[in-house]
Design a protein around this nucleic acid. Structure first.
Length: 137
RNA sequence: GCGGAUGGCCGGAUGGCCGCGGUCCCGGAUCCUGUCCGGGGUCGAGGAAAGUCCGGACUCCACAAGGCGACGGUGCCGGGUAACGCCCGGCCGGGGCAACCCGAGGGAAAGCGCCACAGAGAACAGUCCACCCCGGAUUUCGGUCCGGGGCCAGGGUGAAACGGUGGGGUAAGAGCCCACCGCGGGACGGGCAACCGGACCGGCGAGGCAAGCCCCACCGGGAGCAAUGCCGAAUAGGAUCCUCGCGCGGUGCGCCGCGGGCCCGCCUUGGGCCAGAGGGUCGGGUUGGCAGCUAGAGGCAGGCGGCAACGCCUGCCCCAGAGGAAUGGUCAUCGCCCGGUCCGCGAGGGCCGGGGCACAGAAUCCGGCUUACAGGCCAUCCGCGCAC
């Protein structure tokens, strides 16, 4: 199940994702979904916090992976928040299709300074590690 | 060349790989003809998008007339504009050698209020020291002390002391008188105006603060795109009709008429709303979707008018429309800055760095103001120095 290129070196990080990867992800848009995820499992990493929750059977199709990103005002002004959210979305797009589980909701929470400044390849590794931790591997 | 003033402009560049939102085209799937999938073309943040401080557009609500009042805002003059508290030109006052900059800049003989500290005295002021006169006492004959009066020139205080300097005058003084300056009024002249100049007159009688109240002139309904409209879905509250019921009056005993309270700033005329119980009918606040949602006081170029702000005309262009919120992620090269180091007398140049590249992200849309901002470019002008 290891996808090609998952060794994740910084040199060819740009060619990791297969096309149309994001088509397997849905975007969380409702406040109640975020609140439910925040009450479930969480894993803090230096550059972000990952929250994850297995959905109930009646909420959404069970084969879908859903993801949301959020940054509070603690992250900084509007420019800093937007940049942090864009990097978190890119992380999700690169990692979740191969490593996440269908039927789950994931929320990535930005952190002050680090979400914007850490090396991107390290963030990719951290997200994969956080997913392993959540799923108890 | 150095220092300064003003106005305007830019605010990283290029290329791989992988993505996102709008729109158009092509192909496919489903076939409830609207969704979904794939491919391609094209467009996709700012000078402040920011603060939300003014002015509008646009929606909905309110709005009958007259009189009286209340509240808020603006405040030299003229022009520009859809409008403004904005902009342009001018005036006055202040600062600067200058270019130029700064100023909420109407009214203080309508009234009220305030003017700390210091000082004798701070608004129809006042006698602390000093000066002068008169009377008395005393005397070492210079004066000293006491009482009464004159007086505001001098000292001293202050941000400010009821004009300044000089002369005459006087017991000493004082615009008391005179000259000049200042001040007030002002025929007349210039200017659309603010305002400027000013013959002549007046000895010169009364300070400042109106970003204290106030007076005067002018302007001003309220709320905001989470406005507002449409569509779809379960529960509590509304609108209308019918019946019954309360009080008073009239009754031909079938019924008929009237009724209280509150609100519209106040008053007059006038208008609106609500009012017990039961039943029937009807439309609607919150969450989701769609619309509003971007062609506009629009941009660019040229011409004409105007000192300018700006206006008019012609031609061309279409220039973000998201909605947990797209406009990017990552890598490389270049550019700029910084630090270290080496070479050179110096201007400068080489190398290294897993150092840095500002302020900041459209949210209905425009016109302004204000605030933030690494670095850089252009034009005009002023002062000083050098050369000719």
């Amino acid at each position: 199940m290891t996808p090609p290129g998952a060794t994740g070196s910084a040199k060819n990080a740009g060619t990791l994702s297969p096309p149309a990867a994001l088509s397997r992800l849905d975007i969380l848009k409702r406040r109640t979904d975020f609140l439910r995820a925040a009450r479930a499992k969480r894993q803090a990493m230096p550059g972000f916090i990952l929250q994850a929750r297995r959905r109930g059977s009646d909420e959404a199709p069970p084969d879908r992976i859903r993801v949301g990103v959020t940054c509070s005002k603690k992250v900084g002004n509007a420019v800093a928040r937007n940049r942090a959210k864009r990097r978190l979305r890119e992380l999700a797009r690169r990692v979740l299709p191969q490593h996440a589980r269908p039927g789950w909701d994931y929320v990535l929470v930005g952190r002050r300074e680090t979400t914007e400044t850490l090396v991107f390849a390290d963030l990719l590794d951290d997200l994969r590690a956080a997913l392993r931790h959540i799923h108890g591997e």
